[in-house]
Amino acid sequence: MRSGPIISASGVTKTYRSRDVVVEALKNVSFEVTPGEMVAVMGPSGSGKTTLLNCMSGLDAIDSGDVSIAGQLLRTMSDDALSDYRASSMGFVFQAYNLLPVLSAQENVELPLVLAGHSQKVARARAAEKLDLVGLGDRTDHLPAELSGGQQQRVAIARALANDPAIVWADEPTGNLDSTNASEVMDLLVRLNKEHRQTFVLVTHSGAVGAVTDRIVRMSDGEIIDNGTARSGGAADSASGGASASPGAHGDSPGNPDESEN
């Protein structure tokens, strides 16, 4: 596990300009993630968490510094190469689920598989498998609009995991969910991380989420103020997070993902 970092950023700067307002979203950020690690990025609103995720994952371009994923420098990769890399080795989960509204749950999960060049048959089988994994084996034909928020997020997770990516990026994956659904989703992510040894980077406000990760990176005003240490502060975190709802409770819960929602 402690081999070379799978994600490595050094001196990353990102500035947004709109009219005459200049926002320095990332200021000289350096940051590493080891393979199989589950890292939470936390911090107040506007501290640059999402920007960090976008820049690390190649969804957004950086102004200066270097980001490399599995040893490859992002800035040397073309847009097409990056797209291919995303299709084969990365998965994304967003706060707003962002399922494609015109595709059914099954088709949403199939899409990255088809994109990676799998045959329709393989794609269908793998998608069904992933939907089973997140406990939605019986909802494959439903359109996103016909699913609840928690279910939609689980479809999004299934989609993110479809290609067994090396890295899964999750931006506030529980932000739109109630505590029960949130803990179920988090349990699912933790379980997947444990079982498949995939690397997870989560951006979150929630101390409860942070509590179950391997490490917490703290940001403030575009800078990393604490790079965290592995399994260092689950309890301390939940205390400082303060507002979070009973982190211990769902840590102990069986976290049965097959339990359907009301």
């Binding site: 847009d79 797209s83 291919d84 890399y85 299709a87 994304f92 962002n98 494609l100 994109l115 989609r159």
Partner: peptide
């Protein structure tokens, strides 16, 4: 817009 963003995140190339 948002769907396009998601598709790009999934690995769709601009040309696609």
């Amino acid at each position: 817009r948002q769907s396009i963003g998601m598709m790009r995140a999934l690995g769709f190339k601009g040309r696609m």
